[in-house]
Write a protein that binds this DNA or RNA. Sequence first.
DNA 1: TTGACATAATACCAAAAGGTTTCCTATAAA
DNA 2: TTTATAGGAAACCTTTTGGTATTATGTCAA
Lengths: 107, 107
Amino acid sequence: MIQSASAQPVFRALADPTRREIISMLAAGARPVGDITAAFDITRPAIAKHLRILEQGGLITVEVKGRERINRLNPQALKTASDWLNYFEEFWDERLAKLKQVVEDKK
Amino acid sequence: MIQSASAQPVFRALADPTRREIISMLAAGARPVGDITAAFDITRPAIAKHLRILEQGGLITVEVKGRERINRLNPQALKTASDWLNYFEEFWDERLAKLKQVVEDKK
DNA sequence: TTGACATAATACCAAAAGGTTTCCTATAAA
DNA sequence: TTTATAGGAAACCTTTTGGTATTATGTCAA
């Protein structure tokens, strides 16, 4: 299969539940670091580390605005992971699997 | 959003590149531990650990057959991760985003 | 029944991950 | 022009991760 070269930082970013929650949060709108920190029980430096990993995976972009850093979801990066998984769609989708079977039987 | 309770072991399993390669390999057919080990540059115990993590994530099932352990892909588990990601589809799919815009404008 | 084979189990190690506290810097506001 | 606010940076700690080597176990085959 075509193994996307940039899949690793994306899957790495998605591996942590806190980071996935941050993604869900940012889907509702861009937020500064402080807002995000307020929604969790961990310290700001911990959130900052998660944000950096999300940024490395291309999942968020950061816009510096005065003394704030606005974190914005970049959903295109999620597509990288989705594409990888969807390659296996034929294996889990029964309809597709049966169609495949019919096609192969006709050969 | 509906946060699937079982998403964590799946995303955890997907986080490692070796494990994703194993998944790709098993998509072509079930394989015993030795076969999988032969395809990588790491030792059998290392592969065995990866397989256990894949099993914990529900991504593979294991069938003991004599002295062999046949590892079989369980693609349904991949769907768990895919579903999570597809929740955000509207954010990355321009067509959908525009449709959403039209619907919201009509309100 | 005696090897050879497929794999598990255990003990161990180094590095990475996830967190904390403390201190520093830049911007906004009084 | 102080002072409060938003956030970064560094140092440190503990647990998890990904790997190793070694030893043990059950099964097939000569």
